[in-house]
Nucleic acid binder design. Structure first.
Lengths: 231, 231
DNA sequence: AATCAATATTAAGATAAAGTTAAGTTTTTT
DNA sequence: AAAAAACTTAACTTTATCTTAATATTGATT
């Protein structure tokens, strides 16, 4: 997949910024479209179905957060990555942004190089998850476990287990690559996200609950390294 | 690439802060060096060529912004990430920081966990560009041994061996260059890290345990020089 | 062959990492 | 608004792994 196959929707109310950023990402070969407010953004998004939306938080009328929440309800856009553009110091918006379904936030002013590096990182995630889904389908089977990603259900030898979100995602992560050791950092990034900070023992507690439900012998600890799923 | 392979230069005029932050990032295994002013920072940066510089903005004589501008002129430091440390509310400095070539800013006071999360996010960019690691095969084979880095497993003629972290890394080091003699210093630097001090016999004990598991005839002692892996 | 520094061997002690539990928070559901 | 569920934290326990220390062995050098 080439840069030119990625559609990026850029939303900001200031024409200067719009032009500046659009220029820089166009130069890298991405396909860019723009919108000046939340309403327009939603219209354009529905039409072009972009892979990535760069969404300014501070906008008149409908702000970025609100726009994001509406975008997230759109079924077609569920795979779209949404990154917020926020002015420095707007700590609150960062947190709220994640609640609203944002995947990342980028603080303005941002240097073109940095921005592009962030965009590429985000799109890499897209590539990765896209390939996963195609190759693996929505149901994963490993030993006595069947995981249905869509239904959010785990079946252990024909018994249905209902796992809370975090436990489910943790299991899903480990099980996608059986035997691979996932470091704590990898797990945090994948399950909690890069910018969320939680205590050291949180992961252990979730591992424990998982083991309680799927059996002790599936998740193995490699002390000082991480955890892995084994059959 | 391991945390201990990342060099971080920390610059702040207040010894307390210096010590506090240094303590916290050292604990995570990063290699840290410090400087108390802009001039010193430039000297040290040239010498150690750090991956990341955490630079306090408010410093007597030469402030962080100015220091950054000078650092940015250094050819060797063009890949170095520079992040500013600023007190909350110093609005101006943040903007100026980006003009000066900074990549990020972090507001003080900062909680250790948050700081570390930010640092890891910044260094991830480095890792990403340095990504030959992944393509560089995760499995190494030598004589009857197969080492799987991803799974953290060593297989000796179809028998799985589980090696603890230090033993695994030690074997990995030796086996990447069969027949090369690694001195004790080289081994310490690679497996333990530059700043960790352990007794002389520690290495012998690990070698012994390795020999116990993979067979006596693979690791050869060159008295007075070091150890090497032979087939 | 005697010497001596370097390495080997062991087992015990120390340590850092992970496990456990229960009590707080927060979020979601009713 | 109350209740329940999910998540996080914190204090404490356990354990695998690492280090040390004491003693033995090796092998180069004279």
């Amino acid at each position: 997949m080439n840069n030119k196959d990625f559609r990026i929707l850029l939303v900001d109310d200031e024409p200067d910024i719009l032009e500046f950023i659009a220029y820089n990402i166009t130069k890298e070969g991405f396909e860019v479209c723009t919108a000046q407010n939340g309403k327009e953004a939603i219209d354009v998004a529905k039409k072009v179905n972009p892979h990535l939306i760069l969404l300014d938080v501070m906008m008149p009328e409908m702000d970025g957060i609100e726009t994001c929440e509406i975008l997230r309800q759109e079924e077609d856009l569920k795979d779209t990555i949404i990154a917020f553009l926020t002015a420095r110091g707007e700590d609150y918006s960062q947190i709220a942004g994640f609640d609203a379904g944002g995947d990342d936030y980028i603080t303005k002013p941002v240097k073109p190089k940095v921005l592009l590096s962030r965009i590429k990182a985000l799109l890499k995630r897209f590539r990765a998850s896209n390939e996963d889904e195609k190759s693996e389908g929505l149901v994963i089977k490993q030993s006595d476990l069947v995981i249905d990603k869509e239904k959010y259900i785990v079946t252990k030898s024909d018994k249905e287990l209902i796992l809370p979100k975090k436990e489910f995602e943790l299991l899903l992560l480990l099980i996608t690559k059986p035997d691979k050791v996932f470091t704590r950092d990898e797990i945090f990034n994948a399950v909690w996200g890069e910018n969320i900070v939680v205590g050291d023992r949180t992961i252990d507690v979730h591992i424990r609950k998982l083991r309680e439900k799927i059996g002790d012998n599936h998740i193995k600890t490699i002390k000082g390294v991480g955890y892995k799923f084994v059959n």
